[in-house]
Amino acid sequence: MASIINSTIHIRMPLSKRMLIGAEIALVLITLFLLTVKEPEPAWGKYWMIRPLLAMTMAGAIGGFCNYVIINFRSQMGFTKSAAILLSVIVSILGLFVGFAFGLYGTVLN
């Protein structure tokens, strides 16, 4: 019975919380990557880290939004729960990849 209650609570998680979780995951991933850059090129500018941090955070929040839409409207879309979760994970990973590439283009990915 407890697992049914937990899965119901998980599905009913509000949009804002899902977007914050996605943004947090993305922020941690890009921060870990940016900490590996020892000597940034002077051509990148003094505040070169701002663009990747903002781009990835926004991509993570959008991934959380997509997760909310896919999970909560899966029955109208005709997906089973497992298919909706799988699709949500794939969309989130693709979104993080695009945010990663967009944020680092012109600096590390030059």
Rank of each mutant, 00 (worst) to 15 (best):
M77R: 05
G22M: 01
P40K: 15
M56G: 12
G95L: 15
L87F: 12
R12T: 08
G64C: 03
T80W: 06
Y105E: 05
G78A: 08
W48A: 07
E24F: 03
T8A: 13
G22C: 03
M13F: 11
A23P: 02
S7Y: 11
G99L: 03
T36I: 12
I11K: 13
I30T: 06
T107L: 09
V28F: 08
M19E: 14
I70G: 00
L34D: 02
G99R: 04
S88H: 01
L104I: 07
V108Y: 06
K46D: 14
A59D: 06
M19G: 12
L15W: 12
L87E: 07
S16L: 15
I5W: 06
I4L: 13
K81N: 15
R18F: 10
L87R: 08
Y47E: 10
S7D: 14
E24K: 01
G63W: 08
V69Y: 14
L15I: 15
N72S: 08
F65H: 04
L94D: 01
A55R: 01
E24Y: 05
A2T: 12
L15N: 07
L34I: 05
L32W: 04
E39T: 15
K81S: 13
S16A: 15
I50W: 06
S82D: 10
K46Q: 09
T8D: 13
L29K: 00
